[in-house]
């Protein structure tokens, strides 16, 4: 299978990863588009012995992180109070759907370096080693970021009266 065909097969996963990383659908697809272009341009650097998805995720997160650096637009600090306020307007009957909106909002509140690790491990089910390669940090750093991301997420999701996550089961 040629590179382009393989790349086509990865687009749904790139879109999922991008959506979880940046929260916004349109922005996520812009990110995926940049990633596709970059991947085609740099395809000769891809080592076929390694999983293509991990390589593409690395390309995508690099674009994402450098975009954040450039614009500084995501440095807006969101607090737990913002989250709780937004939530008060939602009727209790909608709580099941809320859990989906909720996790997205909670992820957004994490620093990007923590968010990408928890998304790669939890959603994309990448191994710690793959995550280390994708994010360009040692495995130990991945684990400490993961640990911190999880406890922040727990705090965000439980320090608000009702514990949405426990109800998801």
């Amino acid at each position: 299978m040629d590179f382009r065909t393989q790349l086509a097969g990865e687009i749904p996963y790139l879109r999922r990863f991008a959506r979880a990383l940046c929260g916004d659908g349109a922005l996520a697809d812009d990110l995926v588009q940049d990633c596709i272009e970059r991947a085609l341009l740099k395809g000769h650097l891809y080592d076929p012995a390694r999983p293509l998805r991990a390589w593409l995720y690395a390309v995508l997160r690099n674009i994402f992180i450098s975009g954040l650096r450039r614009e500084g637009s995501h440095s807006v600090v969101k607090t737990i109070d913002d989250l709780v306020q937004g939530e008060d307007a939602v009727a209790p009957a909608q709580e099941d759907r809320l859990s989906m909106v909720q996790i997205g909002k909670a992820l957004e509140m994490l620093p990007p370096q923590h968010r990408e690790v928890i998304v790669l491990v939890g959603l994309e089910e990448m191994s710690y080693r793959d995550v280390a390669e994708i994010t360009g940090v040692p495995v130990g750093t991945v684990m400490s970021r993961l640990s911190r991301a999880r406890s922040s997420l727990k705090q965000i999701l439980t320090d608000r009266g009702h514990t949405v996550l426990r109800r998801v089961k």
Partner: peptide, 28 residues
């Protein structure tokens, strides 16, 4: 933690089933 994982999957797995937007197919 597994509940966190499930919540992320519930929230984002739907994207996998969405048709790939035209501009991405064009980029490819």
């Amino acid at each position: 933690w597994s509940a966190q994982k499930r919540a992320m999957k519930d929230a984002y797995d739907g994207v996998l089933a969405e048709p790939v937007p035209g501009k991405l197919q064009a980029a490819l």
